[in-house]
């Protein structure tokens, strides 16, 4: 299977197999007007199987939300067909409207217009808690 290389944009690599669509949703890639390729179950010596996403445009994307999903993901920045930067997503101190609190007793379950805010409680385990009710998300 051939997927064209990209000239300017991003390659999100080392995504755990099966997580690509989740990332597609979180990063709202469906709203972009450029080419986006999702490669599922690619062969990987390190991971066995992995997913890859290619974005064919340099757009402003907040990759740090990926730290919540999988901090081992690699983001490669491509300019003029060359890899110019590579980084892993940071764990954000606060996630706003990224994950929803599932506690049915939380105020976020009833209050209209209230942002779902989760606070990083443990960097080692990447644990987040709802800012309002303290439930783990």
């Amino acid at each position: 299977m051939n997927i064209d290389s990209i000239k300017n944009g991003y390659v999100i690599d080392h995504i755990s197999a099966g997580q690509a669509m989740k990332i597609y949703e979180y990063l709202k890639l469906g709203e972009l007007d450029c080419q986006v390729a999702i490669i599922k179950n690619a062969r990987s010596t390190k991971m066995g199987k992995k997913d890859i996403i290619k974005i064919d445009k340099k757009v402003d994307i907040d990759f740090d939300v990926l730290g919540y999903i999988d901090p081992n993901i690699t983001i490669n920045v491509i300019e003029n067909d060359k890899k110019v930067d590579k980084f892993h997503p940071e764990l954000k101190e606060e996630l706003v409207d990224i994950v929803k609190c599932k506690n049915p007793r939380c105020i976020t379950s009833v209050e209209r217009g209230l942002k779902h805010i989760c606070i990083l409680k443990d960097k080692k385990t990447a644990k987040y808690r709802c800012k309002y009710c303290d439930s783990e998300v």
Partner: peptide, 29 residues
């Protein structure tokens, strides 16, 4: 009415508010 709206109104009528609410985290709102 949302809790946010109720509070905006009542804080204009009072100097301090004591609130009990069944939903967790409501006092932050």
């Amino acid at each position: 009415e949302t809790l946010a709206d109720t509070i905006k109104v009542v804080s204009g009528y009072s100097d301090i508010i004591a609130m009990r609410h069944p939903k967790e985290g409501a006092p932050i709102v």
